[in-house]
Amino acid sequence: MPLTRREAVAALCGGIAGHAAGQAWAQGSRSGRTIRIVVPYLAGGTTDLLGRMIAEQLTSTFSATVIVENKPGAGTTLAAELVARAEPDGNTLLMATSTTLAINKSLYRKLPYDPVKDFAPIALVAAVPFALVINPNIPVKTLAEFIAYAKAKPGLSYGSAGNGSPQHLGAEMLRTAAGIDIRHIPYRGSVPAMLDVAAGHVAFMVVDLQAALQQIRGGQLRVLGVTTAKRVAAAPDVPTLAEAGLKGFELVAWQGVMAPAGTPRATVDQLAEQIAKLFADPATQGKLTAMALEPLTWSTPDSYAAYIRREVDRWADIVKRSGVMPE
């Protein structure tokens, strides 16, 4: 049905207002604007690292004060709800993960936010491979030996970054694929869980490889395989879990940046441009590759939105196969 004259004028005025707000955002940022990047995990993990890289880029670009606020808890829903309810002015951003935007849709019967309707996608930034790591005092060297060890010790404990996290789902995928009986201990982030694996408080975990590289190289953790389809450049000697015996096993997550729904498109585009510039820089790409992260430079706000919708379906299948029940 065609718009009435009044509706057309209202739509035009709304578009002009949104564009003007976006232009004002860019200009105002040069005069002491404060931007918050909310990270749904504790400091020190992959998401926090990427958030701080983006904060540095936005600080230099817009001459703004950019702060990273770590707000872990409730499977990333605390941070997500905070940003979803924030003023849509481009000053509050979310470091969003597969958990926040895709996995939680299948894990919670009632979410305090809608992953599609409550956010304005800005940019995908990196893909995250995972690795199976164990306490080095466990007397095994290979995946096959570990599976035999776990079968001999039913109820072996494992850590994760929280209920429903990719780390949790990865371990549950391992449970079903290997036929082992294991016990989940959720933490508030990858780093504290990983440190408890190194200390022997829990036996193993599926962890984002970037967060564990230093401990693996230092001998505090033993790595048995990575979850990617191909070996990771930062750890070329580590086999994939599929190579090591779990045929078809693959688990890769992703990280991106979101703003509250209703953020003016001009503002979204300005932020997307600067984030894309950062991750297209060869120096940044080399740094991420060395840390076992894959830079993602192909996304636009629109393609990111479409990607999220596809990922909701993909992770729903992973959740179903893992046996994790919705809360």
Rank of each mutant, 00 (worst) to 15 (best):
R85S: 14
E273F: 10
K141Y: 05
D118P: 06
A229D: 09
H168D: 06
Y108C: 05
Y307T: 07
T284Q: 12
R175E: 07
R310M: 11
I138P: 10
V125K: 07
V128I: 15
I67L: 13
P154W: 04
H184R: 04
T99Y: 06
V207M: 01
A102D: 00
L94P: 04
V312M: 11
N104M: 07
I16T: 08
E56D: 15
A234Y: 07
I138K: 05
L58Y: 11
Q220I: 00
L288K: 02
V39W: 01
G155F: 08
R321D: 10
T46V: 15
I37R: 03
E327N: 12
G18K: 11
A305R: 15
G323C: 08
T99C: 09
M325R: 14
A96V: 02
G159Y: 01
K247G: 07
D317A: 15
H201Q: 14
S31A: 09
M95F: 02
T228R: 03
T228C: 04
S160V: 09
Q23W: 09
V197Y: 05
D208N: 14
H19E: 14
G200H: 13
A144G: 10
G179V: 01
R314K: 14
E87R: 13
S160T: 15
A86C: 06
A244R: 11
G170F: 00
G218F: 07
T76Q: 03
P239F: 08
P301D: 12
F204T: 01
V68H: 05
M1A: 13
V202R: 06
S160C: 11
Y149P: 05
A212T: 06
S106E: 02
S60T: 13
I180K: 01
G51R: 08
G248S: 12
V268R: 10
G256A: 10
T228L: 07
T47C: 13
M291S: 13
I54G: 03
A123R: 14
G22P: 03
A199V: 12
L278R: 10
P2M: 12
I134H: 04
Q255R: 05
G75Q: 13
G262N: 12
L209M: 06
V128M: 10
R36A: 15
T267K: 01
I275C: 02
S322D: 02
G189I: 03
Q285D: 11
V238C: 04
L169G: 01
N135I: 11
P112T: 13
T284Y: 08
T4E: 11
V68R: 02
A21L: 14
P88N: 02
G323Q: 11
T61L: 04
I318W: 00
A292M: 07
L293W: 01
Y113H: 02
E273Q: 12
P115A: 11
V116C: 06
T263P: 05
N137Y: 04
Q214S: 14
P192T: 08
I182C: 00
M53R: 15
T77D: 01
A152Y: 04
A161K: 00
G286K: 10
T34R: 15
P154Y: 07
K105I: 10
L42Y: 05
T267M: 03
A11V: 10
V223P: 01
I308A: 00
V324N: 08
S63N: 13
K141W: 04
A193F: 04
G73I: 05
Q285M: 13
Q27N: 09
A203W: 04
I185K: 11
Y158A: 00
I103Y: 01
P236T: 12
E172P: 01
V140D: 00
